[in-house]
Computed example of a mutant assay.
Amino acid sequence: MIKVLIIEDDPMVAEINKIYTEKNKNFEVYKICNNGADALTLLSKTKIDLIILDVFMPKMNGIEFLKKIREKGILLDVIIVTSSHDADKLDTVLKFGAIDYLIKPFKYERFNSALENFLNKHTLLNKNKEINQCDIDKLTKFKGKTLPVNLPKGFHKITLSRISTFMKNNNYYFTSEEVATKLNLSKVTTRKYLNYMEEINLISSNIKYGTIGRPTTEYLWNR
């Protein structure tokens, strides 16, 4: 069982993260801390396998916490869960070893995908004394970035290639409507392909809430 520490100052978000985490039977939440300072004290006494970390918190924010544990030589895997769209913050946490970055609000499927990616790495590295190149490729940049050979019924390789190339070459969030317009495709077709690309971990989605109207779903290529 993977022991998880959630660091989140919003009680409602923390509870959602806990429910989502324990919905996957391989994980259990050991504790929820509402700031980085308390979490740092806990880590000095308790063995944790994975941290789910917010960025904006009192006493010690997520970035300060991440820097501090690295200074102390604590090499735990960390998944960032935050409302921040700031590219500088993303760049910083990735350089300090965060293994994933989820922007609130997010779908359960995306959250669970982050857990499963961690679990695959954890299992591989803890069950094998030696690994081969194929194993390494699964854990690094080659994972999930190649188009599948066999597509579901009704999907076409050329269309999938066009959409995936566009998303890969544009490091920005796009709605399905925006992608459809830029590639001169139907909105229904584009949405179908984007949903499939998210299922196979080529892209990630983020729900954006505006002041007027329904929330929109945006998609970003997984780097």
Rank of each mutant, 00 (worst) to 15 (best):
D54Y: 04
L202P: 00
T216M: 11
K3Q: 15
V78W: 05
T175P: 05
L50P: 04
D49Y: 07
R70H: 09
L125W: 06
K143T: 05
N169F: 05
D49E: 08
K153Y: 11
F56C: 10
P58R: 03
S186E: 09
E28K: 13
I136T: 10
N201Q: 13
N26H: 14
T190R: 00
F166W: 01
D135N: 15
L75V: 09
E198G: 05
K157S: 11
A37Q: 15
K23S: 15
N61S: 11
N201C: 10
L75F: 12
F118N: 04
N34E: 14
M57C: 05
T189F: 03
E177R: 09
F56Y: 13
I2G: 03
L75Q: 15
L94C: 06
R70Y: 10
K157Q: 14
E28V: 13
L66V: 07
K138D: 08
E28G: 07
M167R: 03
L5N: 01
I212W: 05
N170M: 04
I6G: 01
L40S: 03
L76I: 14
Y193V: 12
L53Y: 02
L43Q: 02
E64K: 14
T41I: 13
I32G: 11
Y108D: 10
L66G: 06
F56W: 13
I158S: 09
P152R: 06
L5T: 01
E22V: 10
E8Y: 08
V29S: 06
I19F: 14
M57Q: 06
N61W: 05
R223T: 12
I52A: 03
N171C: 07
K67M: 10
D135M: 06
G62Y: 11
E199V: 06
K143L: 08
T189Y: 05
K107I: 07
L94I: 06
F106N: 04
I52C: 10
L147H: 05
N120C: 07
D9W: 10
K143Y: 15
N112A: 12
K153D: 12
T175K: 02
D86G: 07
M197T: 00
H156P: 04
K138I: 10
T140H: 11
E198D: 13
G73P: 04
T123P: 01
E22G: 05
R162L: 07
R223L: 12
E116Q: 14
Y173T: 13
K3F: 00
N112L: 11
I158W: 01
F166C: 02
Y30Q: 13
K95F: 01
N195R: 06
K168A: 09
S113C: 07
T190H: 05
C33W: 02
I2D: 04
S186Q: 07
K72Y: 10
K145P: 00
N126Y: 03
N128Y: 10
F142L: 15
K59E: 15
L115P: 02
E71Y: 05
N184A: 09
I80G: 03
L102D: 02
I203G: 02
M57T: 08
T216I: 15
T211Q: 14
Y193I: 10
E177Q: 13
N206R: 13
A14M: 03
G154A: 06
I16C: 07
L183H: 03
K127N: 14
R191V: 00
D100W: 07
M1C: 00
